[in-house]
């Protein structure tokens, strides 16, 4: 895999643009299809993506994978999607234009040609309807002190109400499950699927186990057999 230095890129399009430019490619649909895997790999590893922005990175990843799938299996697409695919291309080109513009803006800022205004003096502020500090005439330090204590009392009262607690179920990762099943199959030639399920405490985990087995079968790591309908499923290792 190509080493991509995590220089500064700002946002999903910034990342895509850096990838395309580091490969010295033009922004075309064909090149976007080429870069799709690299983009996905990058966001999978990247630790420096702001979690709040992750969804936006995934949107771009999904668009790229769509473009790639269309490049690989063109007969599956009717042409209606054409517009949507062009969109990412257009969006990226426009973004590139603005990146170039932002560098020019930065250069202008660096010239430090600031234009100044006469500084405002206090009594002139009122003339321009700007906020002026005008405390009520009867305000005293003692009142402020009392109000402040009152405020603190209110706050501490409110703080005592604890937020409801909820226990999150332990998360099961399909990759971990796959590893577990692989390890089981190293020791034994055959494993009974129902035994594997018996160890699963929640419904989610049953589903994840099942998905893990399907994935392993797809990757040609194992085969499963079932003699009769609803009988036990046996998993066995497939040695390539």
């Amino acid at each position: 895999m190509m080493e991509f230095t995590t220089e500064k890129f700002s946002g999903p399009l910034g990342l895509l643009l850096s990838l395309i430019e580091s490969e010295e490619l033009d922004i075309t649909e064909v090149n976007l299809a080429k870069i799709a895997d690299e983009y996905v790999n990058y966001i999978r590893q990247a630790a420096n993506i702001n979690p709040e922005e992750l969804a936006d990175f995934l949107v771009v990843a999904a668009k790229l994978l769509f473009i790639k799938s269309k490049a690989l299996l063109p007969y599956l697409y009717s042409g209606e999607e054409e517009e949507e695919l062009n969109d990412l291309e257009k969006q990226l080109r426009m973004y590139k234009e603005f990146i170039a513009a932002s560098q020019k803006v930065q250069a202008i800022i660096n010239q430090k040609n600031f234009l100044f205004l006469p500084p405002l003096i206090k009594n002139r502020r009122a003339q321009f309807n700007l906020p002026v500090f005008s405390p009520p005439p009867k305000l005293t330090a003692a009142i402020l002190r009392d109000k402040f204590w009152q405020l603190i009392a209110d706050l501490s009262e409110r703080q005592e109400k604890k937020l409801p607690e909820e226990v999150l179920e332990p998360k099961i990762n399909i990759e971990e499950k796959i590893l577990l099943i692989k390890n089981l199959l190293i020791d034994r030639i055959k494993v009974n699927f129902s035994k594997l399920l018996a160890a699963a405490p929640t419904k989610t985990e049953v589903i994840v186990s099942f998905l893990a087995i399907l994935e392993l079968a797809k990757q040609k790591e194992l085969i499963f057999e079932q003699e009769d309908l609803f009988s036990d499923i046996h998993l066995s290792r497939l040695d390539g």
């Binding site: 513009a101 020019k104 800022i109 040609n113 600031f114």
Partner: peptide
């Protein structure tokens, strides 16, 4: 912003 850049207006920005 205009003062920060030392321009007459945004129309003076390049391109």
């Amino acid at each position: 912003f205009i003062r920060f850049l030392g321009l007459h207006s945004v129309a003076d920005l390049p391109d």
